[in-house]
């Protein structure tokens, strides 16, 4: 029960950082060598690796954030995450495998909101001195057609 609560807290913090546009905090939810990927389910079920984002380690995540802030050009937009069904698949004292559902609404220019992405997270969470962190987070999305572009991690 306590573990479930702690994992929920980690996830709540994670989505709040993204939805509140505190992107510089986003890599800090991972271990330094943690992995983050966004992969369409159609590839995932075939065992194919191609996806939208593949960050292997915090360095690549920070590069992504700097690029978003400084280099890339896009319309102002924000996400609102809705997550549910956090499930613990396996656990040891310091490592937990979980899955949960996510729905991301994207609002562009504070005018229109659409379902941007729907899928599930498959996470490996590890205990560190600073608390629980993602060692691996994969967002497996089901609506394969990405509308216009994806800038912000989900």
């Amino acid at each position: 029960m306590k573990l479930h609560f702690e994992l929920t807290e980690l996830q709540t913090g994670y989505i709040a950082a993204i939805d509140d546009e505190r992107f510089e905090d986003w890599p800090n939810f991972f271990t330094p060598d943690g992995n983050y990927e966004i992969i369409p389910r159609e590839n995932f079920v075939q065992g194919l690796p191609a996806g939208l984002m593949h960050c292997f380690g915090q360095t690549m995540m920070r590069d992504r954030v700097v690029s978003m802030r400084e280099a890339n050009v896009y319309h102002a937009h924000t996400y609102r995450h809705f997550v549910s069904g956090l499930e613990i698949l396996s656990q040891t004292a310091d490592e937990v495998a979980t899955r949960s559902n996510y729905l991301v609404m994207r609002t562009v220019n504070e005018l229109n909101a659409d379902v941007f992405q729907v899928g599930r997270y498959e996470d490996i969470v590890v205990r560190t001195d600073a608390g629980w962190r993602y060692k691996s987070k994969r967002a497996i999305y089901e609506n394969a057609r990405v509308d216009t572009l994806l800038v912000i991690p989900v």
């Binding site: 369409p40 159609e42 590839n43 194919l48 191609a50 057609r145 990405v146 216009t148």
Partner: peptide, 8 residues
């Protein structure tokens, strides 16, 4: 083949 991604 490593997979496909789609953009609309």
């Amino acid at each position: 083949f490593l997979g496909a991604t789609r953009q609309y």
